[in-house]
Design a protein around this nucleic acid. Structure first.
Lengths: 191, 191
DNA sequence: ATCGTTTCATAACATCGTTATGAAAGCGTT
DNA sequence: AACGCTTTCATAACGATGTTATGAAACGAT
């Protein structure tokens, strides 16, 4: 054989952890492969042999983000749609850089790191399920996918504006968020 | 005196035009100062003497974007809130890269180019005004700023998910957008 | 015509993602 | 035990980027 393998799963896990920590701390634009490798005590070659490149490493970071987000949503699911909406915002505000990287897509970011489709859709499923269940409970005739899209867009958009520090004259985003959640209930879930 | 000034307002305007065109065509991540300067028939020095750097050039591009967006909103304003909402989406889908650069903020982009606050707030004013007027017309007790934030978040979020190519199983974003607009009317503007 | 000043294109620099290179480390054979 | 073969990976090199330094070009004043 040859010299022993150092680029093993432990190094892979540590690279992932350091990459996620640096993204969370400084934003995706400010992290370099050299920084990540140095923080993990290895060289940039490890990133290429274990992930393939920066794009794939960031995709792994994003996938981990979706797993964490999905766990947060699943935990809130039993408490209903409003709880899901509040947990959605709470997770996003706790992970601003990561949320942005996860949901902004290729347009806003300087590198394209799309999530694994299945991982991403799993994270949104609780919200969509709650919407469908709520519509069924009142025998609504609205198409569930359209209402689910509207609700998702509502929470995503408010979180996005808040994270972007968009100015809301005369009010707070917390107020707007609660108003929006109540509005969703009135618009779609009362017969 | 000295040699004549070549970095004049004409060159400035042409740099701005080429920068906007390249952002629209290839996205902000794929445009370099060398490309912009070459397209404008000058050197990168012109960007530094006329704007200050890449960040300020992109801020100028974003400000121009807000002016165009504001014109689109003002044109739709007389036709009411639903028309404003549809014009909002239409402009965003026609200028996806620019919309993303304008509204994503520093988190998603690799360079921070915040708009001039006044220019940005002018662009949103028609929407906020229409919301306030609609609430007053029915003597609603909802705080206008909170409802305005909710409405803004609704249209912004749906546009953002659509631009990010987020999957909406079983439906289209066009359907979801129309459903959301009708939902807003039911939630806030019917007594 | 020459000097001095101003202007700006070119070249240099540090840093980035990525790739090439060559030394290090183990195994099999002698 | 020593050499060779193969595999592995840290270092160095490469092209490109934003930014800054440099020095030539272009004019008015003398």
């Amino acid at each position: 054989m040859a010299r022993p393998i150092l680029h093993n799963d432990d190094v892979r896990a540590q690279l992932l952890e350091e990459a996620a920590a640096l993204v969370a701390a400084r934003g995706v634009a400010a992290v370099s492969l050299r920084d990540i490798a140095a923080a993990a005590g290895t060289s940039t070659t490890a990133i290429y042999s274990l992930f393939g490149g920066k794009q794939e490493l960031l995709t792994a970071v994003v996938d981990d983000g979706f797993v964490s987000f999905a766990a947060s949503q699943s935990e809130a699911a039993p408490d209903g749609l409003l709880a899901l909406g509040r947990a959605y915002r709470r997770w996003a505000l706790e992970h601003p850089s990561l949320y942005s990287l996860m949901f902004t897509g290729s347009l806003g970011t300087y590198i394209d790191c799309p999530p694994t489709p299945e991982v991403a859709s799993d994270a949104i499923t609780p919200l969509l399920t709650a919407v469908s269940g709520g519509l069924a409970a009142i025998s609504s005739t609205e198409p569930p996918s359209a209402v689910a899209g509207a609700v998702w867009g509502q929470v995503h958009g408010l979180v996005g504006l808040e994270l972007a520090n968009a100015p809301l004259p005369g009010g707070t985003w917390t107020q707007a968020y609660e108003t929006a959640l109540q509005g969703i209930v009135r618009a779609y879930f009362e017969m």
